[in-house]
Design a protein around this nucleic acid. Structure first.
Lengths: 206, 206
DNA sequence: TGACAAAATATAACGGTGTTATATTTTATT
DNA sequence: AATAAAATATAACACCGTTATATTTTGTCA
């Protein structure tokens, strides 16, 4: 390989960047099973050991993709808050969440599937998941009275999140194969809508 | 190895049974990562090729565990129906579902995790998931008017199932690490209860 | 500029995986 | 008893994540 100086050249990018780019590409195209250390090395024109000097091996690659995934979800639910109409904000965030789950299915499976062989997110990766959860809480807590405790806010956020998360989990399952996939988004939004109404009534009456 | 005739001896059980027993044992103890073809062969006193002549290799083993998992869930939600109080039956089924998910976490990840490497359930395995879904529908449809279409029944079942399924998915996630695990069952049951009430009101007013 | 330390890279190997080709033994049938 | 069929064993293949070793490139300092 030639040595090049001071020339902007994609092939000369940071090895680290090239690795990450190759990993993302493989992951988006073929999911987790296409993401082998050797394949990343091939794709980024390095040898396998490069993945270990620049990242922490496969664990490091998965951590990077994990963080990328949760960052996308955090951004997806970062919608303008409408205090007069909490439901509107929540449905907008829900819609963003669903679209991200569909468009980045590999990431979704990685961060929620729990069973990618031997992978456990690092502490840093876990931080990204907590950040996404806190962002979601900001949207959901508009349903609650202002003096609600954090525990109440967290539990209500879990309620809504579980509904959406559960639907997405079932969406690609044989159980629901005969449900027209175009209808899923509507089904989820209807369910969240019904549940939000119930929560609003609950907190009005108390 | 000695040859034995017409003697009831556990060590002489069907090779097939021995393989399945070994696989179940390994799976319950160490999850999916403990379930290698060689480990099953060792545990069942056979060589690897036995797993291929008696089952369809690892695919066949996973299929058997998949069916075992869905059969457990089907049984868990098979509760007596109380037509006068649909909510009671639904909460009982929910409780059974949650307990099965906790006690058989490996099975839960296998049948819902979606990302066990390269495994896709066979048609026969899919049938077991559909059977569990239909059993659940029997419990949930008591919420609906008797002339409800199958599509309505199915969608309502999906609603309730998604809530429970979503909670269980989040339960073991870093997002919710600080939630006291003893509280989970209560949180889920409360949410299902609220949602069922909302559904009942919805169908009364229409 | 030349010498030397440090970082990056390459090669090859280790132990593990699912799978299969080949050979052998056991079982059942005629 | 002979033969076909089923079950089993051994060894190998191609892949995986990882790492020990060796080599090259890069950066720093005298």
């Amino acid at each position: 390989m030639m040595t090049q100086h001071c020339v902007v050249d994609l092939s000369m990018k940071n090895s680290k960047e090239r690795i990450l780019l190759a990993a993302s590409k493989l992951f988006l195209n073929g999911g987790i099973s296409a993401l082998s250390v050797r394949a990343i090395a091939r794709e980024s024109n390095l040898s396998t050991i490069g993945i270990y000097s620049h990242f922490n091996g496969k664990q490091g690659i998965l951590d990077a993709l994990y963080i990328e995934g949760f960052t996308r979800f955090k951004n997806a639910v970062d919608v303008p808050i409408n205090s007069d109409n909490p439901k509107e904000s929540i449905l907008a965030a829900t819609q963003g969440y669903i679209e991200t789950a569909i468009n980045y299915r590999g990431h979704y499976l990685l961060i929620f599937g729990e069973s990618v062989a031997h992978y456990l997110p690092s502490d840093e990766a876990k931080k990204s998941s907590v950040a996404a959860f806190l962002q979601t809480t900001k949207i959901i807590e508009t349903l609650l009275p202002k003096d609600a405790t954090f525990e109440q806010k967290r539990n209500t956020t879990l309620q809504i999140w579980s509904i959406v998360h559960g639907y997405i989990g079932l969406m690609h399952h044989a159980i629901a194969e005969e449900v027209d996939s175009a209808h899923w988004k509507g089904l989820i939004l209807d369910t969240v809508s019904l549940h939000v109404d119930a929560l609003i009534k609950l907190h009005q009456s108390v």
